[in-house]
Each structure stands twice: as structure tokens, then as C-alpha cells.
């Protein structure tokens, strides 16, 4: 990932910024500039809750080089309360295995550092509910 790509995606990756079509009400994450459904160019920036449930997951034992520092780890497909599905790493599982249907929320974490002197990329991952008092 280039620094420019990272910078362009900071809003969705740092705080789950999405866009909503003001005509057909369709929600997009990652955000879009034009609504693919109705062609409307008036899309409003909105933030989504960051809470959802785990739909499916997989354990990664042999990741790409930049992610070996956190291996082994799990990645999952999460369905957010707003209906959006997205993928992300799972953290703070403790010694437990993830379970389908498990309630999760966004956590702010490092993605990976670029070597010893490069930039460090940050963004969302998912963990079992912590910030909510519901659990």
C-alpha cells in the first residue's frame, strides 16, 4: 500500500466513515462518490456504528511478510448493525476461539509497520464487545 492510498482511506479505516445516497438511502462502505444504484452524486458522509456480528472466520498461520509480527491470527467477515459486510482481523480473543454469531465491535490497531524506518499503518480490526455495557 502506498502512503497516498493509505492517506485516501484514512477516514473509512480510522473511523468507519461511509457515504449514504440522499435519494435512494443506500449506504456504502467503503464510501462512494456516485451512487451506483441511482446515479445520484449527492452522497452524504456518515459514520457507522462499528458494532456487528461475526459471520465467518479463518485462522491465518502463514501470513504475508508484513503481518508475521501478529501471526497466528484470525480474520473474519463481519455484518455490521447497518447491514454492511466487511472483513477484518479479530483481536483480543484471549485464549478463546472465535464463534460464528459472536458480537464484535471495532478496535483501533496497527495494520503493519513498513520496515524499521517506514510509516506505520493503522486502522480498524474487530474484537469481542468491550466498549458497550451491554455485554
Amino acid at each position: 500500500m502506498s502512503i497516498a492510498d493509505y492517506w485516501r482511506l484514512e477516514a473509512p479505516r480510522f473511523r468507519l466513515e461511509a457515504t449514504k445516497c440522499e435519494k435512494c438511502e443506500k449506504l456504502y462502505f467503503p464510501p462512494k462518490v456516485v451512487c451506483p444504484q441511482c446515479g445520484n452524486k449527492e452522497l452524504k458522509k456518515v459514520e457507522i456504528s462499528g458494532k456487528g456480528k461475526l459471520i465467518s472466520f479463518s485462522r491465518i498461520d502463514k501470513p504475508a511478510d508484513e503481518h508475521t509480527y501478529v501471526a497466528p491470527y484470525y480474520v473474519g467477515i463481519i455484518e455490521l448493525e447497518e447491514g454492511i459486510r466487511l472483513s477484518g482481523s479479530l483481536v483480543d480473543l484471549g485464549d478463546k476461539e472465535p464463534e460464528e454469531g459472536m458480537k464484535v465491535e471495532i478496535a483501533f490497531r496497527k495494520y503493519y509497520p513498513v520496515g524499521d524506518e517506514g510509516v506505520i499503518y493503522y486502522g480498524y480490526k474487530f474484537r469481542p464487545l468491550l466498549m458497550s455495557l451491554e455485554d
Binding site: Y69, V70, K110, M131
Partner: peptide, 17 residues
Amino acid sequence: PDPDEDTITISVEAARI
């Protein structure tokens, strides 16, 4: 801290609360 946690991630989490 987990390997993917540092002062920035801790600060963000505390500030969000």
C-alpha cells in the same frame, strides 16, 4: 500490549470512551 498495540492505539481507545 499486543504486537499491534502502541501509544497511538491506546490513546484512540481511551479517547473514544
